Deep mutational scan, measured.
Amino acid sequence: MSYSVTLTGPGPWGFRLQGGKDFNMPLTISRITPGSKAAQSQLSQGDLVVAIDGVNTDTMTHLEAQNKIKSASYNLSLTLQKS
């Protein structure tokens, strides 16, 4: 079951990613910084990142996902799936 979260910026957003197409692993939330915008939302460590700002992550490399997140200036919309 997927869910959506919109973090209001600017960054830093307070989470780290792992995985990506180049690692043959789905993009997942690997760490959440305590007290951060991510920590105050529904994000959980281990959640799968399905889309970033409406763009499906199935074919994204780790770097492409990082760049997509960094390019979000004020709002960052994520679609996630609980692990």
Rank of each mutant, 00 (worst) to 15 (best):
N67H: 08
K68G: 04
S2I: 15
G35I: 04
S71N: 13
G9T: 05
Q18K: 13
S36K: 03
A72F: 06
P10D: 12
Y3N: 06
K21G: 05
V5D: 02
M60F: 10
S71D: 13
Y74S: 15
N24C: 09
Y3Q: 05
A39D: 10
L76A: 03
A65E: 01
S77G: 08
Y3C: 08
Q81K: 13
M60T: 03
G11A: 10
A72W: 05
S30E: 14
D58L: 09
L7W: 04
I52Y: 00
T59S: 11
A39Q: 11
A65P: 00
Q42R: 11
T57G: 05
S2C: 14
N56V: 12
L63A: 15
L78F: 04
W13F: 13
H62E: 08
S73P: 11
L27K: 02
T33I: 09
G46P: 01
K82R: 15
S30L: 09
M1H: 04
S2V: 10
D53H: 05
Q42W: 06
P12Y: 04
I52Q: 01
T57K: 00
T79L: 12
K21P: 04
M25C: 11
P10F: 10
L80F: 05
T8A: 15
A38W: 02
A38V: 04
N24Y: 07
A72D: 12
S73G: 15
S77H: 12
S30H: 14
G46F: 04
T57S: 08
K37A: 13
S83R: 09
G46V: 00
D22P: 08
G20N: 03
G54Q: 06
L78T: 01
V55G: 05
S73Y: 12
I52P: 00
G19E: 03
I69H: 00
M1W: 04
D58H: 12
D22T: 04
D22W: 03
S2M: 15
Q45Y: 07
S83I: 11
T28C: 08
S2E: 06
D47F: 02
A39P: 02
Y3A: 04
D58C: 10
T6H: 09
D53A: 06
Q66L: 12
S30A: 12
M60G: 01
S2K: 05
L7E: 00
T6Q: 08
S44Y: 06
T79V: 11
T79I: 12
E64T: 07
T28I: 08
D47I: 02
K21Q: 08
V50D: 05
D47C: 04
V50S: 09
S36A: 05
Q81L: 13
G11M: 07
D53T: 03
L27D: 00
T33M: 07
T59L: 09
Y74T: 15
M1S: 11
T28A: 15
F15R: 01
N56Q: 11
Y74R: 15
E64V: 06
S77W: 07
K68I: 08
L7N: 02
A38R: 01
N67G: 10
S36T: 14
Q42F: 07
Q81T: 14
Q45P: 12
H62G: 10
Q66I: 14
S73H: 15
S44T: 14
Q45V: 14
L17D: 00
K21R: 10
I32K: 01
Q40I: 08
M25G: 09
Y3G: 03
T79K: 15
F15T: 00
F23S: 10
D22N: 13
Q42N: 11
G9S: 06
T8V: 15
F15M: 07
L78G: 00
V50M: 13
N56W: 07
G46Y: 05
T6A: 07
A65Y: 02
L27Q: 02
R16L: 10
L17A: 04
Q45K: 14
M25K: 12
S41K: 09
T61N: 06
Q42C: 09
L17I: 09
A38E: 03
N56M: 11
I52D: 02
T28E: 09
L63M: 14
T28D: 02
T79H: 11
T57H: 01
I29N: 01
V55E: 14
M1I: 15
S71Y: 11
S44A: 12
K82D: 09
Q42D: 13
L80S: 02
K21F: 08
Q45H: 07
N56E: 13
A51Q: 07
S30K: 14
K70A: 14
D58Q: 12
S2A: 09
K70N: 13
D58K: 10
T28Y: 12
A51N: 06
S36Q: 04
L78E: 01
T28G: 06
T6L: 10
G20F: 01
G35R: 08
A51H: 04
S41V: 07
V5S: 03
Y3H: 07
Y3P: 03
K82T: 14
T6G: 05
K82F: 06
S2P: 05
N75P: 10
F15D: 02
L76N: 01
L43F: 05
L76S: 03
T28V: 09
S77E: 13
Y3W: 05
D58E: 14
G14V: 01
L7S: 01
N75A: 12
Q40P: 03
K68N: 07
S71W: 08
A65C: 09
Q66V: 15
S4H: 05
I69F: 04
I32V: 07
G19D: 02
Y3D: 05
G46I: 00
E64Q: 08
I32H: 00
G14H: 02
L7M: 10
S83M: 14
G54V: 00
M25E: 13
R31G: 12
N75K: 15
F15Q: 00
P12A: 06
V50I: 13
D53M: 13
K82P: 15
G11H: 07
V5I: 11
I69S: 03
L76Y: 02
S41P: 03
G35E: 09
G11I: 04
G11T: 06
M60W: 06
D47T: 04
T61L: 04
G46R: 04
L7H: 00
Q18M: 14
T33Q: 08
M1D: 15
V49M: 05
A38I: 03
A51V: 07
T33G: 05
G11D: 06
N56A: 14
M25L: 14
V5T: 04
G35A: 07
R16S: 14
M25N: 09
F23D: 09
G9V: 05
W13K: 04
R16I: 12
G9A: 05
K82A: 15
S83P: 14
P26N: 03
Q66P: 01
G9M: 04
F15S: 01
E64A: 08
Q45A: 15
I52T: 02
Y3L: 06
L48A: 11
P34H: 08
G46T: 04
K37C: 09
F23N: 08
Q40V: 09
L63H: 15
P10G: 13
S83Q: 10
S77F: 11
S36W: 02
P34Q: 10
Y3S: 05
D53N: 13
A51W: 03
T57A: 13
D22F: 04
G46N: 10
M1Y: 15
L43W: 01
D58R: 09
